[in-house]
C-alpha cells in the first residue's frame, strides 16, 4: 500500500468520531476519568507542554475558558503527547496558572478517535454529542494579528442556537507525538 493510500485509509478508518457521549482520560494522578457530553456544549482542546504554537495560545485558552466556562461550556484539555509525562503536564499547568484541568490522553486514544493531528487542535461537541467544529482556535499564532476568532464565534453561535459561522478550519501546528502501535 502506498503511503498516500495508507494515509487515506487511516483517516477513513478514524474518520469523524461520530457521537462522543463520553470522553475517557486520565487525571494527572493517574486516575481514570469519564467526562459526559450529553446536554452540554463541550470544547475539547489537545494541547502540549513543549509545542511553541500551543504555548503561544496559553493566555488565549485561559481567556476563552474564563469567558465561556461561566456560560455553561464544558472544557476538556487533553495532552496526548507520549513524550510529555503527567508530571510535566502538571508542572506546565502550574507554571502557566491554568484555571482549568488538563488530562492525559494515555496512548492517544481520544486523539485517534477525534483524528486530532496537532496542538492546539480544537473539537467542539454540541449538546447532542456530535462534533460540530474541528480546527484552530483562531487564525493567527501571534495574538496581535488575529482577525478571525473561530472558537469564540463557534461557542457563541452554539450557545445562542444560531448557525455556526464555520465548521472546520486548518492551521499549522506541532504534530501530536503518538505512541507507536502495532498493526
Amino acid at each position: 500500500m502506498t503511503t498516500l493510500a495508507a494515509f487515506a485509509a487511516a483517516l477513513a478508518l478514524l474518520g469523524a468520531p461520530g457521537k462522543v457521549d463520553v470522553i475517557k482520560a486520565t487525571d494527572l494522578q493517574g486516575k481514570p476519568v469519564e467526562i459526559r457530553t450529553a446536554g452540554k456544549i463541550t470544547a475539547v482542546i489537545f494541547i502540549s507542554t513543549q509545542c511553541p504554537i500551543s504555548n503561544d495560545y496559553n493566555e488565549r485558552m485561559k481567556a476563552l475558558y474564563n469567558e465561556f466556562h461561566g456560560k455553561g461550556v464544558q472544557f476538556v484539555f487533553l495532552n496526548a503527547n507520549s513524550t510529555e509525562s503527567s508530571a510535566e503536564v502538571a508542572e506546565h499547568a502550574r507554571k502557566h496558572a491554568f484555571p482549568f484541568t488538563v488530562y492525559k490522553d494515555v496512548n492517544n486514544v481520544e486523539a485517534d478517535r477525534f483524528s486530532a493531528e496537532f496542538t492546539p487542535h480544537v473539537f467542539v461537541i454540541g449538546k447532542n454529542s456530535e462534533v460540530i467544529y474541528r480546527g484552530a482556535i483562531d487564525d493567527s499564532r501571534p495574538a496581535d494579528r488575529v482577525t478571525k476568532t473561530y472558537l469564540k464565534d463557534v461557542l457563541n453561535a452554539a450557545l445562542e442556537g444560531k448557525p455556526l459561522p464555520v465548521t472546520e478550519t486548518k492551521a499549522f501546528g506541532c504534530t501530536i507525538k503518538r505512541v507507536k502501535k502495532s498493526t
Partner: peptide, 16 residues
C-alpha cells in the same frame, strides 16, 4: 495558511 494547507493536500490539517 488554510487555503495553502488544503491546496497541498485536502486531508492535511496543518501538523508539522
Amino acid at each position: 495558511d488554510q487555503k495553502f494547507i488544503s491546496m497541498v493536500d485536502p486531508r492535511w490539517s496543518g501538523g508539522l
